[in-house]
Amino acid sequence: MNTLSNGEFFGQTNKILHLGGLTITDTEYTHSYVDWHYHENAYFTFLLQGNVIETNKKETYECSAGTLLYHHWEDPHYNIKPDGFTRGFHIEVSKDWFEQYQVSKDRIEGSFNLKNPSLQLLVYQIFKETKINDQASDLSVQQLLLDIFSQLSARHIHRLEKKPVWVNRIDELLHENFTEKLNLTDLSQILDIHPIHLSRDFQKYFHCNMGEYIRKLKIRKSLTLLHKAESLSDIALECGFSDQSHFIRCFKNNTGLTPLKYKKILQR
C-alpha cells in the first residue's frame, strides 16, 4: 500500500504553504483512480470544485464541492474521480502540532464526513487566509483550526452519550429543506417533541440556534456556486435567500467578505 509523505497528494499541486506544523495545499486532482493508500499525517480534505468518490474501510463518500472530510494518519482509503475539473484544499496536521497545542488525538481517530456547516465555513475562512497570506495569516489559521478541533472534541463527547434520535433527524431535515421556509411548530410535530425541548437542546448539539444553522447551510451552498458564471441574484434564489441584498449581507456576516470579493480569492 502506498504511503504519502507530508504535503504529497495525487494531482497537480498549485500552491503549498507551511504554517507552524501545518502543511496546506491547493491541488487539482488529475488521477481518475487512486488505489488504496494512506498519509503519514492527519489531514482535512475540502473539495472546492468538482466531484470525487472516496472509500475507506467503513464507508463510501460521494463528494461534491463543499464536502469536508477528516482523515487520521495512516487511515487507508482509495479514490475515484469522475470526468471534469476537480480541485481540493488540504490541511495536513503534523503530530508535533497536536502536541504543541495539546489537542487529544484519541478523540478524533478514523475518517469521517463533516457535514456541519459551521465547520465547513471555518475551513473556508482558512482557505481565505491562505490566499491573503500576510503576517497575520499564520495566527488566524492556527486559531481557526483550534476552533475546528474544539468542536470535533465536543462531537466526540456527545457520541459517547446516548444522543436522542431527533438530533440526526433534525440535521437531515435542515440539510434537505434549508432553502424552504421552516417553522419551529412544524418541525416539532415532525420530530414528535415539544417546541421548547427542541429550541433548548438544539444549541447543545449544534453550537448555534436553528436560524443561524440554516443561514450557514445557505452560505455553504452559495460558496460551492461562486466559481461558476452564475449571477449573484441567481445564486441567492437557488440558496433560498429572499433577495440578493439579503444574500450579500448574510454572506459578509459569515465570511467577512462580499461574495464578489470571495469569488476573486477563489480564482487565484
Score class of each variant (00 low, 15 high):
25 T>L: 10
26 D>C: 05
27 T>E: 10
27 T>P: 08
27 T>V: 15
27 T>C: 13
27 T>L: 10
27 T>A: 08
27 T>F: 05
27 T>H: 04
28 E>C: 06
28 E>F: 06
28 E>T: 14
28 E>Y: 04
29 Y>D: 03
29 Y>C: 11
29 Y>V: 15
30 T>Q: 09
30 T>C: 07
30 T>K: 08
30 T>F: 05
31 H>F: 14
31 H>M: 14
31 H>Y: 13
32 S>G: 05
32 S>I: 12
32 S>K: 11
33 Y>A: 08
33 Y>M: 07
33 Y>S: 08
34 V>G: 01
34 V>L: 04
34 V>D: 02
35 D>I: 00
35 D>E: 11
35 D>Y: 02
35 D>N: 07
36 W>H: 05
36 W>G: 03
36 W>Q: 09
36 W>T: 10
36 W>V: 12
37 H>C: 04
37 H>G: 02
37 H>K: 05
37 H>R: 05
38 Y>V: 06
38 Y>I: 06
38 Y>F: 13
39 H>N: 04
39 H>K: 02
40 E>M: 12
40 E>A: 10
41 N>A: 07
41 N>G: 03
42 A>H: 03
42 A>D: 08
42 A>K: 05
43 Y>A: 02
43 Y>I: 01
43 Y>K: 01
44 F>K: 02
44 F>L: 11
44 F>I: 09
44 F>C: 04
45 T>M: 03
45 T>S: 07
46 F>Y: 12
46 F>P: 05
46 F>T: 09
46 F>D: 05
47 L>F: 03
47 L>S: 04
48 L>N: 07
48 L>E: 11
48 L>K: 13
48 L>V: 15
48 L>R: 08
48 L>D: 08
49 Q>F: 04
49 Q>K: 13
49 Q>L: 11
50 G>N: 07
50 G>Q: 07
50 G>C: 09
51 N>I: 11
51 N>C: 12
52 V>P: 01
52 V>A: 13
52 V>C: 12
52 V>E: 07
52 V>R: 09
53 I>A: 05
53 I>R: 08
53 I>Q: 08
53 I>M: 10
54 E>V: 15
54 E>R: 08
54 E>I: 14
55 T>I: 10
55 T>C: 03
55 T>H: 01
55 T>D: 01
55 T>W: 00
55 T>A: 06
56 N>S: 13
56 N>G: 11
56 N>E: 09
56 N>I: 14
56 N>H: 09
57 K>S: 12
57 K>M: 11
57 K>Y: 09
57 K>R: 12
57 K>I: 15
58 K>P: 00
58 K>D: 11
58 K>L: 15
59 E>F: 04
59 E>L: 08
59 E>P: 01
60 T>V: 14
60 T>Q: 09
60 T>H: 00
60 T>Y: 00
60 T>A: 02
61 Y>A: 02
61 Y>K: 00
61 Y>G: 00
62 E>C: 06
62 E>M: 07
62 E>L: 13
62 E>H: 11
62 E>P: 00
